[in-house]
Design a protein around this nucleic acid. Structure first.
Length: 392
RNA sequence: GGAGGGGUGGGUGAGCGGCUAAUACCACCAGACUGUAAAUCUGGCGCCCGGAAGGGCUUCGUAGGUUCGAAUCCUACCCCCUCCA
């Protein structure tokens, strides 16, 4: 169970390698576009192949509610159903114990959900999560975890973490498919002690890979980076390390630097559907009036279909008119941007120049004009507040 | 010619004596979004000063009037629509 992941080069804590799956290899560091309901919103599988996506992420919880995992299985599995021949990782539904917390009740046995679609009740146990992901035919299945809010007190955080460990063991125990990898998930909030304890507990179960969950859920960025660094050291070097739910371009670079290999995030596609455009210089909003007459591509450095074929003014117009093509073009661009970021990172690691790559990227990825203006305003206000408090 | 209805902020359209610088929607100007209940959500949107709180000024076809107070009541005028001739 150790030959599926090959690390080709290491540069500092950053690594590059290949993860083999039943539906093909995944070059790491890898970003996985999110296809929660079996579709990357606004995109077709052809779009995803064209922009260089290796692997997609789908969600067993959501697919369980609609259309049902049994149906997907009867239709030939998720790959056939959604027309995607490459690797698929499915999330177990653990995150939904956090994001849909109003609709759930957690017990030792599993999670009782009330469907957000029709109010019906559904039970997700560790065994069921594995069974469902097996029926879906995922190349990589995730253990069922409990993701606690970042500001939960130590008692609650520990409770969720320990339950995650017991569930991990049950997932591992019930996992049968030999053509499917199974990843365990580390929890423990922003406490280094709990994180190390969790990493030890989960790695003892010998999964095909290890995920860091429960981060990027509202905690301060410095705390997240500290925990990621710790995990980059604590998790086994010969297994892929997957940081769940990250992220933004700068987080991706920073977390690759800290030893993470795989990422997923809804941010690039969600932001795209609202006009947010990722570039090396920072994030732009094409919907803004300043793009009304922009007779040039969204991102001059980009080789994606949207940037090669259309002016920013046209895409601006599509957004204003709420034309569906807007969502597709912006999603293509943002995902291509991240795919290229991953390609560049892999190359830099292989060449041993990742440090320089990281400095250059972070240095260049500045806030947008508006954010810069706003932060200057905040500084001004802060200075003024200090002046007033001195005057008192 | 007769009868009736109506003119409100960029648009549609509420309000019909003080709580109204004026509901709502759209448009417009920005912001947010990190294992997707999101093609969503939030703020702003007469003018001037202010970071804000707040203050000042000018608004509901036009001109007068009644009233402590009017987009809201009265009078005249201008314009629009419907029906009957």
């Amino acid at each position: 169970m150790t030959d599926h992941f090959q690390v080709r080069a290491v540069d500092g804590s950053a690594r590059t390698g290949t993860l083999r799956t039943a539906h093909g290899p995944v070059e790491t560091p890898a970003f996985m576009p999110v296809a929660t309901l079996g579709s990357v919103k606004a995109l077709a599988p052809d779009d995803l192949s064209s922009l260089g996506a290796d692997i997609l992420l789908a969600n067993a919880y959501h697919l369980m509610l609609r259309p049902g995992v049994r149906l997907v299985s009867d239709m030939g599995g998720l790959h056939a159903f959604m027309g995607w021949g490459g690797p698929i990782l499915t999330d177990s539904g653990g995150f939904q114990t956090f994001s849909l917390s109003r609709l759930k009740r957690v017990s030792e046995d599993g999670v009782l959900f009330q469907s957000h679609l029709d109010g019906s009740e559904h039970f997700l146990s560790p065994e069921a999560a594995i069974e469902y992901q097996g029926l879906l035919g995922a190349d990589i299945a995730m253990a069922l975890d409990e993701c606690a809010p970042h500001d939960a007190d130590d008692t609650r955080m520990r409770q969720a973490m320990e339950r995650t460990h017991r569930w991990a063991a049950r997932c591992r125990e019930s996992h049968r498919r030999h053509d499917q990898h199974l990843f365990g998930i580390v929890q423990g909030g922003i406490s280094p002690e709990m994180r190390l304890e969790s990493a030890a507990a989960v790695t003892s179960l010998d999964f095909h890979g290890y995920a860091v969950g429960g981060l990027s859920v509202g905690e301060p960025k410095a705390d997240m980076y500290r925990i990621v660094s710790l995990m980059g050291e604590a998790l086994p070097a010969n297994k892929p390390r997957y940081l769940m739910g990250v992220g933004s371009p700068e987080d991706l670079v920073e977390c690759i630097a800290r030893g993470m290999d795989m990422f997923d995030c809804s941010l690039p596609t969600r932001v795209a559907r609202n006009g947010g455009i990722l570039t090396r210089a920072g994030r732009l909003n094409v919907v803004n009036a300043s793009f009304r007459e922009a007779n040039y591509p969204l991102d001059a450095d980009c080789d994606c279909y949207a940037c090669r074929s259309f002016s920013a003014a046209y895409i601006h117009h599509l957004f204003r008119a709420k034309e569906l093509l807007a969502y597709r073009l912006a999603s293509i661009h943002n995902l291509r941007f991240l795919m290229r970021l991953m390609e560049d990172a892999r190359l830099a690691i292989a060449e041993g120049s990742f440090g320089a790559f990281r400095d250059s990227f972070i240095g260049g990825y500045r806030a947008t004009d508006e954010e810069l203006r706003r932060s200057q305003k905040d500084k001004w206000l802060e200075a003024r507040r200090r002046g007033e408090s001195q005057a008192d």
